[in-house]
Each structure stands twice: as C-alpha cells, then as structure tokens.
Write a protein that binds this DNA or RNA. Structure first.
Length: 781
DNA sequence: CAGGGAAAGATTTTT
DNA sequence: TCTTTCCCTG
C-alpha cells in the first residue's frame, strides 16, 4: 500500500494548509475550479496516513451520486481499497442507510418504500379526493410544494398548523396531517423524511445519537452552500461532540434556494462553530481570465455574498462570443455550426457542452444536432427511473418488499388491465376501512365478499403477489422479476402498444439488467436495490464525455467542466427565469446560476439567445439583462449577431430595458431556407397587430446574413398602438386597478395579445398571476 | 369498465 | 406547442 508516498507537492500552500488541518471545525471556501475535490480527497488520505482516524470513522456527504462516486474513485487512487470502509455518499443515500438500521425505533419497517415526487402527488391527490377537495380548488403540486417547504423548515403538521391561520392554511394543515399519516401507514418516506427522521431519531434516542457520533469522528460535507435546514441540523448533531466537521463550499454557487437550501448555513458557519479554521481557495485552475471576469461581472452584483475574486495564471484567453438567432431553431443552428467548425478543425465533440436554464429548451438543440449528424448525450429531463413502464414494474417490486405500500398497490392494481377499475377499487378500499385492514390485506377478503369478476381478480392478484413474495426467499431478485413479468404478460402488453411500446420494452430490459448487475454486487437484495434506485438522478448516468456533445441544464452542470461551453437562451424571462427580478433573492440565485454556467468553460465561452422563442403560445422576451451587464471588452460579437452594438439599460432614454440596437435600421431578417417565415402575418401588407409591432420594436437586432426575403421596417407603425386606453399599454411598473383586487403594480409581463400574462402585486391580496385578456384591468398610472 | 376524443393546462431548476 | 386530464360513448 502506498501510504508513505503521499505527496502534497502538487497542492498550493492554501490547499496544503486545508489538507493538514485535521482537527476541529474547518471551512474551506472553494471557488469554482479551485481544486476543491482535490483538497477533500487529499485531506482524507492525509488523515489516514497520519493515523488521525480509521477509515470507517469518516463520513463524507455529497449532493449527487456522481459527486460521491467521483470522490470515492479519487480517494481510492490515493488510499486503495480502504475507501470501501468509509461512508461516502449523498445525504439522502447515507441517511437512508442509517434509517434502514434504525427504522423500527421510529415505527417503520426496515424495508420502507421511498416515495418520489410522483408518488407524493398520487398520495396527495388520493387524500384530496377523499376529503372532497377538487383539484381545481387546490392544485396538488402546489400542496406538495407547500408541504415540502414546511418539512424543509422542519415543521411537523402541528407546528405548521400554528404557523399561520386562515381557511386555506387550515386546508393545507388537514392535508399535511393526512399526508404524514398516509406515508407512515404505507411504511413509506419521502425525500424530506430521509433527512428529518434521523433528526427525530437522534432527539428521541440519545443513545443512538451517541452511537453514530462515536462512529463518525470526522464529518465532511461537500457543496455546503446547498444544505437546507434539516441537513444543517442533522450534521451539526453528528459533529457536535468531537467538533470535527469540515465543510467545503462556495456561496457564489448556491443554486438550490428554491428547494430549501439556506445560503446562510455557509455564510454563518463561523458563528455556529467557534474556532473555525477558514481556508480560501481563490486560484482557479480551470478557466481563462476572460471567462472568470465574465462570470464575476454578473455575480458581483449580489449583496449577500462573501467578497472575493478568483484569479488564474492562465492569461486572458479568447473573448466570449455572443450568438443570436432569429428564433430558437436558428439559435440552435448557430451553436451547431460553431461545434462543427471546431470539429472540422480537429476538436472532439466531447469538448462541448450546451447549457440551458430549462429542460424544455433542449428540443430545438437536439433537432439541430440530429439534422447535422452531431453525436450528443442529453442529461436530465425525463429520468429513467421515472418512466411510466419502469415505475409500474418498480411498483410491483416495491409491493413484494413492502405490502403496505398503498400508492404502489393503487398503481398496479389495474395494470395491466384486469378489470379492477375505479368502482371495484373503491369497494375494496371501503372494505378495508370497515374491517380495519390494510388495503393489501383487503384483497383476499374482497375475493370472498365481492360478487362477480372484481372479487375474483382481486384474489388472484393477491395470490400472485404472495407467491412471488415467497419465492423471493429462495430465488434471486432478477429471477423473481422475470417470473413476475411472465405472469402479468408485461412484454405482450407493451408489444400491443405498437411503436410506442418498443422503447418501453427496452427500458424494461434495461431495468432487468440493472437489477441483475446489482444482485451480483450486493447482498442487500431487492430492498437495497429499490432504495438505491429511488435516489438516482440522471446526471449520475453521465458517461465520461466520449466523443459526443453534452446537453444539460445549468443545475446539472455544476461540478463539471468542458473545453467549450455554450450558455443558451440568454433572454429576459428565461435566464434570469420568469419574474425573478421581482424578488431580489431570486435574482441573486439567477446570477449565481449564470456564474456556475460560465465557469464550466475552460477555454472558450459562448453566450447565445433567440430573438423570438415559442413558449407555450407567447413570444420571446428580448435579451437578458445579464448581457447588458457584461464588460464590452470581454465580448466578441460574431457576425451571426448582426453586428449590432448592445447598449446598456440606462443608456437609452425611453428605450426598453436591456435592448439590443440593430446593426442598421435597414437590415433584413434571415429565414431558414425551405421553411416559411415563422410569423407569416408579417408580410408587409397586413397591418401589424400591437404585439407584432411591439415584437419588432424590441427586436434586439436584425440578422446580418443575406436577405432571403426582405422585410419592411415597422418601427414607425408601432406608434399607433400607444393610445392611452389600449390594454396593451400595460407595462412593468404600471399601476392598475382590478375590479376585485383593487390597486396593484405590474411586476412582470409575458406573452403577447391573447396570451399575455401579467403578474401584479396587489395592495390587498399580494402577488397574483393574471391573463391580461380576462383581467379587465384599468391602467391608472 | 375501457377507449377515444376534446378541452384544459403547463414550463424552472432535483435528491 | 405538446401533454395531461376529463368526459362521453360503446
């Protein structure tokens, strides 16, 4: 074993200091690309070499499985197989593991189910149905997010009840109560529970806390800026006695506020842990100076951050190139073109990543790449384990392990169709209530009591599940799964779905082989597989680049790096997203998101936008305000960009915020060959609608490419729509009167004409989203 | 009870 | 624009 060979020479001074400080609280502020993982892994290796502790006394927590795997691999390179004795994993998987051992103390079985957000929604809908709350009255997704926020803030139904008042709040409280009870009855935990229940465990059973504290003498946490209240609390509990807590993070990269991440956890770390040793890693080893400047120029607008600035000795490097297409397809084409150019010059496709704010943006990009035969992989979107056919099968497997799992039973009770529809299910559940039985146990009773086919079918299903459950004792999990598939004739049913079914069959096969692989490598059996699978994200499937372009959201890209990065969709309303500028905290998070996106690039950064974008009916929002805040000397405006000069928000009196000036008033619009104009109405003879005039007016530029179809200049015609009584006059910051809500201020506007939606902050009822067409607003100022 | 068709709804970001 | 939900018919 190569222990004495441990070499700290490859680390800079600050990194070395962080590595060798092995006792007490440690805060490592590690900027993007500053060698954070390197420091963490070397620190662990160093602790082993210096015999500070034994491998199994180390707990290392990350947010994604991918980060965990990478950390494990890199530790293994330094210390060999001793890494297997350490607990290195995501918060969720580590605590799921702890809970598997401790669940009984909390009134759960060790084979509990983990409910993902889809399962949560099903449970909530079921509850609302029983309470006769219509989904029109209360949106289940909204309920889910309210409950999840409450749980993130560590509120149980009782404290939630007291946190507010009013009819709506009482409604939420009732559902929250039923939801918690429903989970427990189903022997199920949601993602939030995986963090909350350990806290409950430690509070109720101090000796268990003592045990785990003693077990993990050294706690290390990656991406600490993304921890939420529960994560903060549970790790604090674990570390409180020995004080060996080492956290690594970067407040500029906190991008999970929407999910309860509390940036003050890292900002106030030194207050929570007196005597903290702080190390700042500010040398960046990844990106050029230009890229760092670009990222910094946006994030430095944030008030809530530790002042700092990354530096590099790499030199200025290449300028940032701006690209803009007429619409999202053109934007994609421009990006694709750049990739192919570089590819012809010898660069592999694996060097490129295209990032976007929302998953929906991937479509146009994919189409362009496919059309041009560029190989790519896409991360995120519909995840493998969330696909319907996969979840259906998993639901069966979950039932075998945890028969109390009501949501899974509801899912499979009539899939494939076996004549147990809503009516029959209702009767069986009724029976369960009357006899005080679990839903599952009511199945055989139904077989006796219910007349007709329904009862018989319920009995058959129960018998099948029981039989398979028995087999699980003797046979391997994948054999049982095969038997299950045969018995329910799954493949035949998918086959019958026609062309749709084909990829589903492949997914089912993939699930089969995943289970087989797991069974070969683990003794945890089907329970272990199911719990692991519930905690897998799609980024985890990221293949090591290979020779293909990677497409993903900015969120998924955190922690990754590429030679060349395209950040696409830099438009108002998209990036920064929605009405985030109405809330300073949200806007700060968008800036950090931009920072994360830009700092993924090593050598070359492109920023792109579409002048017009189809978004559920509406149009695009014009250039992102971020673009106007970039120092011009860092930018290289490509010809594709129309040669227009961008002027900042404040420079043009009366102009729209953050607007691009066209390269020339007479420039024409390019259209893709063989495709009709995206907005045929703009043919020159037909009078423009207000929205079109507006659209034209805010057009950042006209593409400078040869004219395929000359367009007249409508600049003047927009005048006629500025009559004082026109509802289209509604603009951001306008003061409006609503017949019901009274006075309010417009804080956001999206779409045009019929689809125009506006967000208004009313004095009486707060922020409301309205469809302008229906709202009958009167503009008063 | 199942399947088809029409109408409404939806777009952040993920463990 | 595309997907999901709901309602109606067979």
């Amino acid at each position: 074993m190569k222990v004495s060979g441990m070499n700290l020479d490859g680390l800079n001074t600050e990194q070395q200091n962080a590595v060798t400080r092995t006792e007490g609280p440690v805060l490592i502020l590690a900027g993007a690309g500053s060698g954070k993982t390197r420091v963490l892994t070397h620190r662990i290796a160093w602790m082993l070499e210096q015999r500070v502790c034994r491998p199994w006394q180390i707990l290392a927590l990350t947010f994604t499985n991918k980060a965990a795997r990478e950390m494990k691999d890199r530790i293994a390179q330094l210390v060999g197989e001793r890494v297997d004795e350490m607990w290195v994993g995501t918060f969720h998987s580590i605590f799921a593991r702890i809970l598997r051992r401790e669940a009984e103390l909390l009134g759960y079985d060790r084979n509990y189910s983990i409910y993902d957000s889809d399962d949560q929604l099903r449970l909530l809908k079921d509850i609302m149905k029983r309470r006769e709350i219509s989904t029109n009255q209360l949106n289940p997704k909204r309920v889910r997010s309210v409950i999840s926020s409450a749980k993130n803030a560590m509120l149980d139904p009782e404290s939630f009840a007291n946190s507010d008042s009013g009819y709506l709040h009482e409604l939420y409280t009732d559902i929250f109560r039923d939801y918690s009870a429903g989970l427990k009855k189903a022997n199920a935990m949601d993602f939030d529970d995986l963090l909350l229940l350990p806290i409950e465990l430690f509070r109720k059973f101090p000796e268990r806390l003592h045990y785990w504290r003693d077990r993990f003498r050294h706690v290390m946490i990656d991406e600490y800026q993304d921890t939420n209240r529960a994560q903060f609390t549970v790790t604090q509990m674990l570390a409180e006695e020995h004080n060996n807590i080492c956290v690594v993070g970067d407040d500029d990269q906190s991008i999970y506020g929407w999910r309860g991440a509390d940036i003050s956890n890292i900002l106030d770390f030194e207050d929570h842990w007196p005597q903290t040793a702080v190390f700042k890693l500010e040398q960046n080893y990844r990106s050029s100076e230009t890229i760092l400047e670009t990222a910094h120029s946006i994030v430095s607008h944030n008030a809530g951050r530790k002042p700092k600035k990354l530096w590099t000795d790499k030199g200025k490097g290449e300028l940032v190139t701006l690209l803009a297409g007429e619409d999202e397809a053109m934007e994609a084409a421009l990006i694709c073109d750049r990739i192919q150019q570089a590819n012809r010059a010898g660069q592999g496709y694996g060097d490129f990543a295209v990032l976007y704010r929302t998953n929906a943006q991937s479509r146009a990009l994919e189409e362009a790449l496919i059309r041009n035969g560029v190989r790519y992989q896409i991360i995120g979107g519909l995840r493998f384990y969330e696909r319907r056919e996969v979840k259906d099968l998993l639901a069966y497997l979950r039932l075998l392990v945890n028969p109390r799992d009501t949501i899974s039973l509801l899912r499979v009770i009539n899939y494939p169709k076996r004549g147990l529809g809503d009516v029959a299910v209702g009767r069986i559940r009724q029976l369960a209530v009357e006899e005080n039985l679990d839903f599952y146990d009511a199945l055989p009773v139904a077989a006796q009591r219910l007349s007709g086919a329904a009862g018989q079918r319920a009995g058959e299903l129960h018998a099948l599940l029981e039989e398979l459950r028995g087999r699980l004792q003797e046979e391997s999990a994948d054999a049982v799964m095969q038997e299950l598939m045969d018995r329910i004739r799954l493949l035949e049913h998918l086959e019958a779905e026609g062309p749709e079914g084909q990829p589903r069959i492949e997914n089912v096969r993939e699930l089969q082989s995943a289970l087989a692989r797991y069974s070969d490598n683990s003794e945890l059996g089907l329970e272990g597989f199911l719990q692991e699978v519930a905690l897998v994200a799609d980024v985890d499937g990221l293949q090591d680049a290979g020779d293909q372009v990677t497409l993903m959201t900015v969120h998924s890209a955190k922690g990754l790096e590429f030679d060349t990065v395209f950040v696409s969709g830099l438009e108002e309303g998209l990036f920064p997203l929605g009405n985030s500028f109405a809330d300073e905290d949200d806007l700060e998070e968008e800036r950090r998101l931009f920072y994360v996106a830009a700092t993924r690039a090593e050598r070359k950064l492109y920023l792109s936008m579409a002048r017009y974008r189809r978004r559920y009916g509406g149009g695009g929002g014009g250039p992102s305000p971020f673009l106007s805040q970039l120092p011009p000397e860092l930018l290289d405006q490509a010809d594709d960009f129309g040669g227009g000069r961008f002027r900042g928000r404040d420079e043009r009196a009366g102009g729209r915020d953050g607007r691009w000036q066209g390269g020339g008033e007479t420039r024409e619009t390019i259209r893709r060959p063989g495709r009709p104009a995206s907005r045929p109405k703009r043919s020159g003879r037909v009078p423009l609608s207000g929205s079109e005039a507006l659209l034209n007016k805010v057009s950042p530029f006209r593409d400078g490419a040869p004219a395929a179809d000359p367009m007249p200049d409508y600049e003047n015609e927009s005048q006629e729509f500025e009559g004082p009584s026109d509802p289209r006059e509604i603009h951001v910051r306008a003061v409006v009167l609503h017949s019901k809500y009274g006075r309010g201020i417009v804080i956001h506007k999206a779409g045009f004409d019929e689809d125009m939606r506006i967000t208004v902050r009313f004095d009486s009822v707060g922020v409301k989203k309205l469809v302008a067409r229906f709202a009958k607003l009167q503009v008063v100022g």
